[in-house]
């Protein structure tokens, strides 16, 4: 393997991991508040097509990203109303969101399946981007890759350095105590779910506008579910989400290169790798029951209503 191939793989890995960073960071905040939203796949799909349509119509990346995030947030609002106000089962509501999002996105995208996009351009910083090796590895991505790192820093700061983050985590552990202390549990959870929706939408936009600038029906192809698995894998810690996302990015990318190394492996078997890796990772992390119990928010997935307690 030449240095150039290795560089290509590393750079592509970061790009492939980025949609997962967005979606998983969003879901992490949702789960920290004690809510389990299984609709990530659906929100990503609707975000992807909304962003794609706006990009195709206006050519403005900023507008595409904003609309994709808005679309994801609107989708998550449906989920929030169902589970937080109407106290519906979170698992069923999340599944409904994914089924609905899958249908809605192919419905919205019917006229856009053969539209070509210019996509987000890689930025070029004079001098820095020209440094050998380091320049390519650090300064050669499109702006959305850097945005994901900024958001990671914000999430870290929010969760570990702010009072609001502390309240969010407290509510995820015990909504009853939070309520007794006078915190608006439901309103906080609404905000968390909306944030998760916007982030999933952003992950979707990244896929359809920057990663593969085109729209294909169901193009998220399970990444929303991988993001959910990543949150467990990361034991609800943002930094580990980043590691996990790039790890999965690597598994996705390596399949395109493995045949180049002279291995005769059918493409279908290679396409299975990310899904099998997800299962393997879930098994590895979940087998330690204590680790999961210590790290997962105690009220995760349990419906809470202040008047019902």
């Amino acid at each position: 393997m030449t240095l150039d191939t290795l560089m290509n793989i590393l750079v592509a890995t970061i790009a492939a991991g980025t949609p997962l960073v967005y979606a998983a960071l969003g879901e992490l905040i949702v789960e920290k508040s004690g809510v389990l939203n299984l609709g990530v796949e659906g929100m990503m799909l609707v975000g992807a097509i909304s962003g794609f349509i706006v990009m195709a119509k206006t050519g403005s990346l900023l507008l595409a990203v904003s609309c994709g995030m808005l679309a994801g947030a609107i989708m998550s609002l449906i989920f929030a109303v169902l589970t937080l106000t109407l106290m519906a089962n979170q698992v069923a509501s999340g599944l409904a969101l994914t089924i609905f999002g899958t249908g809605l996105s192919s419905f919205m995208g019917i006229d856009y399946t053969s539209v070509a996009l210019k996509g987000a351009r890689e930025i070029h910083i004079p001098f820095f981007s020209d440094i050998p090796i380091l320049g390519r590895l650090v300064f050669s991505y499109d702006i959305l890759v850097y945005l994901s790192l900024v958001l990671l820093a914000l999430v870290l700061w929010f969760l570990y350095k702010t009072r609001a983050g502390l309240i969010l985590k407290a509510i995820g552990e015990s909504p009853r105590s939070g309520h007794a202390l006078g915190f608006p549990v439901i309103r906080i959870r609404y905000l968390a779910v909306l944030f998760g929706g916007a982030m999933a939408g952003l992950g979707g936009v990244y896929l359809s506008v920057a990663y593969t600038p085109m729209w294909v029906e169901g193009m998220v192809s399970g990444r929303g579910w991988v993001a959910l698995a990543l949150v467990v894998f990361a034991t609800w810690r943002p930094m580990r989400v980043l590691t996990g996302a790039y790890l999965f990015g690597g598994v996705t990318i390596i399949q395109f290169h493995i045949q180049g190394f002279g291995f005769e492996i059918p493409s279908q078997v290679l396409s299975m790798l990310p899904y099998l890796a997800t299962i393997a990772v879930l098994v590895l992390i979940s087998r330690d029951k204590k680790l999961i119990r210590l790290n997962s928010p105690a009220s995760l997935g349990i419906t809470f209503h202040p008047e019902n307690n």
Binding site: I78, L82, L86, A88, N89, A92, S93, L95, A96, L97, I99, F100, G101, T102, G103, L104, S106, F107, I110, E217
Partner: peptide, 15 residues
Amino acid sequence: AVTGVFQGMLLFYLL
């Protein structure tokens, strides 16, 4: 694809 939209709505409304 409108089928998927209807199916999803049905479950939303039920919940």
